[in-house]
């Protein structure tokens, strides 16, 4: 028995194909980027090794890189403190509604998540359009016409519009995770609370919220790391503009490589980006673990 489970050939056959694909398309490119980042290559032609010059610039001098990180932090902040409380609230009330309506609402809230980001992003570009967009029309209709904006073009508002769209798209995920967490709380606990005369708020703060803690941790760490990794909505809605107001790291490095022809510099950004992601994940998990 033990001999079968230690058979080297079998282990190799099982594990090698997956590891090969993973290494080839995920790990190898990071190492290649680390190397390209040390050159002055433009993507074609000859190049020289320039050492850590690109990395130094990314970390210490690049203001756009810093803006991109701050934008990601803003997105993470709004996701955790706006989207998540709303998602949790709706998870709790749909659970209370029960029956067919509950399944209906649960199904509908997730609809935006199954639609391609390309569709939803382009749809929102139209909804937010200043000439014919749905949002401005609604504002006109309810006599709030003075609030009309070029939602994606205004330098102080664009970031919030982008954040709103990303939160809209991701709402279903956050909701669903809280919802399944609430379904996992044993009914007897809530029943016992009710018998002891707990009101809705006490039920939430004394039973539901503490019981949800593990789920909250998972959900919040997903939110923080995915805020950092946003790209498609930005690429498709504003491409980082106006100016660099809505720039995010992934979109920035993409622009540097394919529009600005700074291939080696873009690779340096990519490597710093990976390191930032790794550090953030480790830090977030450690904070949660020590809280536990």
């Amino acid at each position: 028995m033990d001999r079968i489970r230690r058979n080297k050939l079998v282990i190799f056959v099982l594990v090698f194909p997956g590891l090969l694909v993973f290494t080839f398309a995920v790990l190898y490119p990071i190492f290649m980027s680390a190397y390209y980042g040390m050159t002055d290559w433009k993507g074609i032609g000859e190049f020289n090794i320039v050492g850590f010059e690109n990395y130094r610039k990314v970390i210490f001098e690049d203001k756009i890189f810093r803006t991109s990180l701050l934008n990601a932090a803003a997105l993470a902040f709004f996701t955790v403190f706006v989207q998540h409380p709303v998602a949790m609230f709706f998870a709790i009330i749909t659970d209370k509604i029960g029956g067919k309506l509950e399944s209906f609402f649960r199904a509908v809230f997730f609809v935006p998540c199954v639609i391609s980001i390309v569709v939803t992003s382009k749809m929102w570009v139209n909804v937010l359009n200043s000439n014919y967009g749905l949002l401005n029309k609604i504002l006109d209709a309810i006599n709030l016409g003075f609030l009309k904006q070029d939602w994606l073009g205004h330098k102080d508002i664009a970031l919030f519009s982008v954040i709103f769209v990303i939160m809209w798209q991701g709402f279903g995920y956050a909701y669903l995770i809280y919802y399944s967490g609430i379904k996992g709380i044993p009914e007897e606990l809530l029943e016992a609370g009710r018998i002891d005369g707990a009101n809705s708020w006490q039920q939430f703060s004394k039973i539901t919220f503490p019981m949800l803690k593990p789920v909250i941790m998972v959900n919040v760490s997903i939110a923080i790391t995915s805020s950092l990794k946003q790209m498609e909505p930005i690429y498709l809605m504003t491409n980082g503009g106006p100016g660099t107001r809505t720039q995010f790291v992934a979109n920035y490095l993409y622009m540097q490589a394919f529009s600005a022809q700074k291939y080696s510099y873009a690779n340096a950004i990519a490597v710093v980006f990976v390191i930032v992601c790794l550090i953030t994940t480790v830090v977030v998990q450690n904070i949660f673990r020590s809280r536990d």
């Binding site: 594990v15 993973f22 490095l253 291939y263 990976v274």
Partner: peptide, 24 residues
Amino acid sequence: VFLNIVLLGFMIPIHATLLSNFIT
């Protein structure tokens, strides 16, 4: 060790691999 290497992939953003995969 190898399991953890694979799970490391969770943290790596797709976008950081676009440039060099394009060349490869």
